[in-house]
Simulated scan of single mutants.
Amino acid sequence: MSKFDEKVELYTKFMNEKNLSFDADLLTAVTKGLGPSIYKRDAETVSGSDPKELETVKKNFLIKKLGLEDGPSLDEAIAEVVEQIGKSERNKYRAVVYYLLTKKFGKESVYAK
């Protein structure tokens, strides 16, 4: 099994443990879109309490990648996803956070092949 497949398996297991329903193909596509960052411990997770980190998620993912307009709804969506995963959960995997945000905004087409 490749390192990439191991990461997808880890995120799949995580989502199953959290009882989050998901589309495995989309999760794989989102994970692939993150590139080598998934192999770096610090970059692999999102800090739900760090305003600078949350701003990065908003600017680099929601606005640049998904093409959304900046506004309070983006911050609210990020807060909802952090809540959904669990504020006390230490491992808020970036792939899972981005997957949930992609679904929330109905932007699956960004990852369509």
Rank of each mutant, 00 (worst) to 15 (best):
F4K: 04
K7E: 15
T12E: 12
K13Q: 12
F14E: 11
F14M: 08
F14Q: 08
N16R: 10
N16K: 12
E17V: 06
N19D: 12
L20A: 03
S21M: 07
L26N: 11
L27Y: 05
T28N: 05
T28Q: 10
A29V: 10
T31R: 03
G33N: 13
G33H: 12
P36K: 15
I38R: 06
I38V: 13
K40D: 14
R41V: 09
D42L: 14
A43F: 15
T45S: 10
V46I: 13
S49P: 00
D50G: 01
D50V: 02
D50R: 06
P51Q: 01
L54T: 01
E55D: 10
T56N: 13
V57W: 07
K58Y: 05
F61R: 06
F61T: 03
L62D: 07
I63T: 09
G67H: 15
E69P: 02
G71I: 00
P72H: 10
P72W: 07
L74E: 02
L74N: 02
E76L: 05
A77E: 06
A79H: 01
A79T: 08
V82Y: 03
E83L: 02
Q84C: 11
Q84M: 12
I85A: 00
G86R: 02
G86H: 01
G86Y: 01
E89M: 05
R90T: 14
R90F: 09
N91A: 13
N91T: 15
R94H: 07
R94W: 10
A95C: 13
V96H: 02
V96Q: 00
V97R: 08
Y98E: 13
Y98C: 04
L100Q: 06
L100M: 10
L101H: 03
T102N: 03
T102H: 00
K103P: 04
F105Y: 09
F105W: 04
F105E: 07
G106S: 14
K107W: 07
E108N: 11
S109I: 07
Y111L: 08
